[in-house]
């Protein structure tokens, strides 16, 4: 039965990879079993999803604020 057990380090790593890749069926089974018994990793999974959705909603196209512009000009003068 030991071959079914993975560590939390490995489980969190697989969760992140799973966002982008398909894991093998066996790897998924290990992950699923791990999540079934580990409340920390379940929590990590939930929070990770929340963070991802928050990150998606961030508007990355912001311009510099006036203060930053001033600071920059000031630095250039020096």
């Amino acid at each position: 039965m030991k071959f079914l057990i993975i560590s939390c380090k490995e489980a969190t790593f697989r969760l992140l990879k799973h966002e982008e890749f398909r894991l093998s069926l066996f790897a998924l089974l290990q992950l699923w079993l791990h999540l079934a018994v580990c409340h920390w990793c379940r929590l990590f999974n939930k929070q990770n999803k929340k963070v991802n959705s928050l990150l998606k909603n961030i508007d990355t196209t912001v311009s510099l604020t006036e203060k930053e512009k001033e600071l920059m000009q000031h630095k250039l003068k020096e």
Partner: peptide
């Protein structure tokens, strides 16, 4: 993580406020 790859108690995930979703304005 500790040597065996399990969460260290002091660094493991803690419960988050359930209304952070709505409260966290961007």
């Amino acid at each position: 993580f500790d040597d065996s790859g399990h969460w260290k108690k002091e660094h493991g995930p803690q419960l988050w406020n359930s209304d952070t979703e709505s409260a966290t304005n961007t």
